[in-house]
């Protein structure tokens, strides 16, 4: 049932879409019918797959790098409270600048390869990961901290043995947001300048009025993002099995 319901919704939407295109006679370069998009998917799947691979690598590397940086930032913020006054404003500012505005600069610096896309994805997920994890680190159950204090734990050992594991459920919610937004960073990076990738393919198709190819690329991108999200969600559940028990 859990899989059947979204599938049913999807089929209904597709049917309505197909019907709308037939009845209204919209030209296919404005709105291609689902059947046409399906045709593109079948005809050009090797090209779509190759581009999906490039975009996927960008997203995954961005996710890893952004998560690593985010976790390190959150941990140093938690360990050195004075650092907060310096780093927190910087964090907020970094989030206030739209990634779109930075994209041309990043391309200028890192070129047309993987670099700027990974940087973009990293930038976009760095903040949610840092914010969620840091928040979790600050909200340790006070009873646990009291207990750890009477046991004679040092700041570092309490951080590593109590506060960090206690913050993992919070980190996983940050990671879920990150997994959902990382594709944005990669695709924006490709729009500004790239040799390959689903974003690049969409841009090319757009230039040639091949709207059906755009839709096909978009479909593959959505599939990629959903798969990634499901994997991260699964991984988080497996790594932090106690997170669900505590609500």
């Amino acid at each position: 049932m859990t899989l059947l319901r979204p599938l049913l919704v999807l089929l209904t939407v597709l049917a309505l879409w197909q019907l709308g295109v037939w009845l209204s006679g919209v030209p296919h370069f404005l709105l291609p019918s689902p059947a046409r998009v399906g045709g593109v998917l079948l005809d050009r799947w090797p090209e779509l797959l190759a581009n999906a691979w490039v975009t996927g690598v960008e997203i995954v590397l961005g996710l890893l790098l952004g998560t690593l940086l985010g976790c390190l930032s959150a941990l140093s913020l938690a360990l050195l409270p004075p650092l907060r006054r310096w780093l927190l404003p910087l964090l907020v500012v970094s989030q206030a600048i739209p990634v779109f505005a930075l994209a041309p600069l990043l391309v200028l610096w890192f070129g047309y390869g993987l670099g700027p896309k990974i940087a973009m994805a990293t930038l976009i997920i760095y903040f949610p990961v840092t914010a969620a994890f840091y928040d979790g680190l600050r909200r340790t159950e006070t009873g646990w901290l009291d207990l750890a204090q009477t046991m004679g734990g040092s700041r570092l050992s309490v951080l590593l043995r109590v506060r960090l594991p206690a913050a993992l459920p919070a980190l996983t919610s940050g990671l879920r947001v990150a997994a959902a937004t990382a594709p944005i960073g990669a695709v924006v990076g490709e729009w500004v300048g790239a040799g390959a990738g689903l974003g690049r393919m969409m841009l090319d198709a757009n230039g040639r009025m091949q709207t059906d190819v755009m839709f096909a690329a978009l479909f593959v991108l959505a599939l990629l993002a959903l798969t990634l999200y499901a994997l991260v969600d699964r991984g988080c559940r497996a790594a932090v099995p106690w997170a669900q028990e505590r609500n």
Binding site: L147, A148, G152, G153, S157, R161, V162
Partner: peptide
């Protein structure tokens, strides 16, 4: 054994 771990 948490106490031992915390005390290193």
């Amino acid at each position: 054994v948490l106490g031992d771990r915390l005390r290193g």
